[in-house]
């Protein structure tokens, strides 16, 4: 499917995906699109959720919550400042998962 290829392209090839979330970029992109209610495959890595995609602060907390649920991690609310675009989401999740693996 076209959409799937686009999603692959948008999510994996043009973004810098940290090793800790490598292989889950598609899944993350899909989750972001579901929460922000935008079509999968249409979001570039640096498209800003608020300014470009019409999200509000409530949506960003929703996103943080779903990331915590899906990845079983704790994300500090201060990280909302970085959860501004897809690249930011990859980076935050990468950092959190790295920290978790160090703890373990």
């Amino acid at each position: 499917m076209n959409t799937e290829r686009n999603a692959e392209a948008a999510a994996a090839t043009t973004a810098t995906v940290p090793a800790a979330v490598a292989g889950r970029a598609r899944e993350i992109e899909a989750l972001v699109c579901r929460v922000l209610e935008v079509e999968s495959g249409t979001v570039g890595p640096e498209d800003r959720f608020v300014d470009d995609l019409g999200a509000d602060s409530m949506k960003l907390i929703e996103l943080l919550s779903h990331l915590e649920i899906e990845f079983d991690v704790e994300i500090d609310e201060d990280e909302l400042e970085r959860l501004v675009h897809l690249q930011g989401v990859y980076d935050v999740l990468g950092d959190v998962l790295d920290a978790d693996s160090l703890d373990a």
Binding site: M58, I61, E62, S65, H66, E68, I69, D72, E74
Partner: peptide, 11 residues
């Protein structure tokens, strides 16, 4: 039922 009681969908 989730790992933490606040892991709810705030929406």
């Amino acid at each position: 039922t989730r790992a933490k009681p606040y892991r709810v969908n705030p929406a």
